[in-house]
Amino acid sequence: MNTNSNTYTVIYATVLVVVVAAVLAYVSFTLAPAQEANRQNEVRTQLLASVGIQDVKNAKEAYDKYFTESFLVNSLGEKVDGDAFAVAMNLKGQNDKIRVGRPENATLPVFICTFDDGSKAQVFAAYGAGLWGPIWGYISVDAADMNTVKGAVFDHKGETPGLGAEIAQPWFRENFVGKKIFEGEEFTSVKVVKGGAAADDTHGVDAITGGTITSRALENTLAKWLGIYLPYIQAQKSQVSSCCAHECCGHCGDACACEGEGEGDACGNCCEAADSACCHSAEGGCCGKCKTENSEEVK
């Protein structure tokens, strides 16, 4: 047979390509569920790490256990319908809307984590451009004051190993724990400080030596995304403080977490959740101090 004829060449190429395509389609189809599960578990592991829960064996179980609530918010701080986890799987889609100057169309995921002791943290996402490719991450704040960072986790597509890629390392993200995103009522986000943040800097973390561009990109990304979350965060924050302004247990101060507004109920939540001097009483109602000092109001 003449293997150099045009007909033979065309037929050969066609058959080869069809056979190869069929094999690949079959394999891709068979492995798709396992690959999707991996991607989901990765997002779950990152969400867990962002609230400080690490080294879990079964990410799905732990996720279902701790993440009790999740929803989407828009740039006005309103909750909107949708699957937060699905959005977290594809943060790029939301970033595209923000990037073209339409942050009002973005719907960003919020995850609420309930710890074993009943305290809560709210997790926010961020996604943006690093030096070589996208960087993204999750940052969690204590639901009791909507200000103190509980933890953060970052990842990247292709930052320089040993330099920018260090943002994914535990030592870097541990810097974020305990930082504040507000100064008084003013939103500050968390800054990445070149040359190292001062020990008493509550809004800054050390930048990565040799990874300045990635560090700065991370700072901008965080500020940008938290900026879109801001109306929601502020609404939550004012709820928290309105509860505390309620004189019932004035001693709770900033550290109290409540969900209801005003009312004795809010105070009750406050006492259950907050770990402060006023809230240690185990017997019902509010707490020891409230009872003695403001017993009228508690009831």
């Binding site: 293997t3 150099n4 190429a13 080869l16 690949l24 396992a34 690959q35 991996n38």
Partner: peptide, 30 residues
């Protein structure tokens, strides 16, 4: 293999195995 398109044919064979490995790693060694 037709001599005139042999490089392309080789590429297709190589690409097939590479994609198989890539898919496999993504599924089992993420």
């Amino acid at each position: 293999i037709p001599n005139r398109i042999r490089i392309i044919v080789q590429l297709v064979i190589v690409a097939l195995f590479v994609i198989l490995i890539d898919q496999f790693l993504k599924a089992y060694m993420y």
